[in-house]
Amino acid sequence: MTEQLAAKEISTTVSRRGVWTTVRRRPQFWISLAALILLLLIAAVPGQIAGFFGESDPRVCPLVESNQPPSAGHPFGTDIQGCDVMANVLHGTRTSLFIGLATTSVCLVVAVTLGTIAGYFGGLADRIIARLADVILGFPFLLGAIVVLNSVPERTPLILSLVLAFFAWPTLARLVRSSVRSVKEREFVQAAHAVGFSHARIILGHVLPNSLAPALAVATTMVGGVIVAEATLTFLGVGLTQPSISWGLQLSVAQGYFQTAIHTLIFPSILLTATVLSLIALGDALRDALDPKGRS
């Protein structure tokens, strides 16, 4: 009746809107992508890029130039030791980005795996994973990190990421678990069971794609948190050791000179903020494009 008539009217205007065509039209996608590529470029060749603007070596620190505001030779100024802030910030990008991204990815993999198992299968697996998460959440992060980091032979960025990931996955896993549980109850999942699909196909094909969005949103904001957490650990003397260079290290040192040398605090912060913002923006754009409802 009326319904089929309507169907015939609209059917001529159907157009294909894939993920790429949607994402291509969004400036948010291009801006955040450009920012991230720039950051990766800096992480790859920090010396050369710093060289364009002045001092290329972060370890050249003439004490006479201590605590200078931004000037021609030092666009970001110098810190209390007389080292070029720009060279330091650019050289710190590699470590900080690595720690941020590595920690978050490890977290995400662990959280999605365990959260999905707990949420989808429930029962004993759920109880074990949930209790495990509770124990880790209940453990004081700093105390735990100090104990673990003091007992490893060498504190490399990788070790640090693993430790941070170990303490950060439970929150994410809980999020995945609850959204998997709600998707599991939806009728299309039951319909998939009813046509005899295997668990693996149902999980990978139907449950996960529909339950990842909240976890990914939290994960993008987590990157910034992790970079700062590394700073906390380093500040307490259990993180990266001198002469490592990272944004976290710079931020924690700069806190002390907040009133006398504010530029040493501002510039690492700007890069940290840019990283987090562009990750969030990219995540948003991709999420909207991957959701069929956001594509019209």
Partner: peptide
């Protein structure tokens, strides 16, 4: 065997919005 059997049973659910995966055409 159960999975094999389910291929031969079709199911239509009540809620027309819930019964289709929103991400599949």
């Amino acid at each position: 065997e159960l999975r094999k059997l389910r291929k031969r049973i079709g199911v239509v659910f009540q809620n027309p919005l819930g019964a289709l995966d929103p991400r599949l055409t």
